[in-house]
Nucleic acid binder design. Structure first.
Lengths: 209, 209
DNA sequence: CGGTCAATACGATACGTATCGTCTCGGCGC
DNA sequence: GCGCCGAGACGATACGTATCGTATTGACCG
């Protein structure tokens, strides 16, 4: 195809990047996707709908994103930007805050409802799944990791705590309740989980006194 | 639920049920669904495909099942019948067994891959979601509940343990790793989770000695 | 400098396929 | 015969691809 000897080309987003030209359409597509995700959810999101809303041809969407999932991942990674955490320096308080954030993100916002459908598509596209974890999961997790590391430094947690698993436990419990068991997700859940993780106390049914 | 009115309806397959005649087609449809679920997964399962494989008209499928999700739920509820548990009477051993079963079901069998896509559909159909929990979730959970109750009777667990949450924790952690974080799900995970739940030990990275 | 031009991304839209859920058909078992 | 059956035609919708003519751009030339 490209024959001429001298051209600079593929390297991503350099000066002479093709994207310079696309900036407007590119942006409009991501905005439209983001809006439609909250309006109709992931399952009912269609490429045609995105193109129409963005005032763009379908082909333009397909030119840059392989699939609906790829589009959604990029659109979402913009929104999950940074609701900065509190970081009081008190492990219990900070962890409780992190659990509450997980609950808000998964159970209270419409984002949570997107996850199962998106996850289903991601399971078929390992590359995209990796991107999802990198761009969306990792930033959120790294904040909690920072909290836990400081607690380790203070000696409040063993040095070899498996921080990843620790997070998987509370996020998993919340996610499971939201998407599978349908049981309530509330403040007392947050407290139970923190208590389990920090004090080793088995969860008990809160008394009603 | 119980409707005092005249019509008997939802209750499954009574004597003078219209299903009498349909028995053959009915069965063929469920078998075809079950086979296709393992062959192509939930996302690529189509009603047309089911009808074709079952040697049945599409309308016959729609006559009895509102949606692909309803069909899948019923087909799955037959397979999850009963891989009877061991029940040694030793809490740690029995719980470990339960966690391993969860891992096998979610991470090792193809069933696990169905869950996100199915869950996404279930979130739009609360009635069906309830049926899913009743027919598929509850039987599996009730076995673990029995184990935990006996442990309570023996005094190995506090009387007011929140058994539901306890199960949510380990199932959630496993599910989260499988469908979201993509981290490994192995035997050491099972042990870590049991240790967290029974001993209150925070998860630590297994040393490599 | 400023004008020209090939390259190419653009919006639009037509295309063929797939699947949906509805709907009519004869046919045949009860 | 009544009514459920299998078959499949049907209008929708969305897919992903292909092809228009246009608009914008950066490189080159004058």
């Amino acid at each position: 195809m490209t024959i001429s000897g001298a051209s600079k080309e593929l390297p991503p987003a350099a000066a002479g990047d093709p994207r310079r030209r696309n900036a407007r359409a590119h942006e409009a597509i991501l905005v439209a996707t983001s809006e439609l995700l909250t309006e109709v959810g992931y399952a009912r999101l269609t490429i045609e709908g995105v193109a129409a809303r963005a005032g763009v041809g379908k082909a333009t969407v397909y030119r840059w994103w392989r699939s609906k999932a790829a589009l959604a991942v990029e659109a979402m990674s913009r929104r999950f930007d940074s609701p900065l955490p509190a970081e009081t320096g008190d492990l219990r308080q900070d962890l409780l805050d992190a659990v509450r954030r997980a609950i808000d993100g998964l159970a209270r916002s419409p984002e949570g409802a997107l996850i199962p459908a998106l996850a289903a598509d991601l399971m078929r596209d390992p590359t995209l799944a990796a991107q999802f974890r990198e761009q969306i999961l990792r930033p959120r997790r790294s904040r909690v990791i920072a909290i836990l590391r400081k607690a380790i430094d203070r000696g409040e947690l063993p040095a070899n705590v498996d921080v990843d698993l620790l997070m998987d436990v509370y996020v998993g419990a919340v996610l499971y309740r939201v998407v599978v068991s349908g049981e309530p997700v509330d403040e007392s859940l947050a407290e139970q989980l923190v208590s389990l993780l920090l004090d080793g106390k088995q969860p008990v049914i809160p008394s009603v006194d």
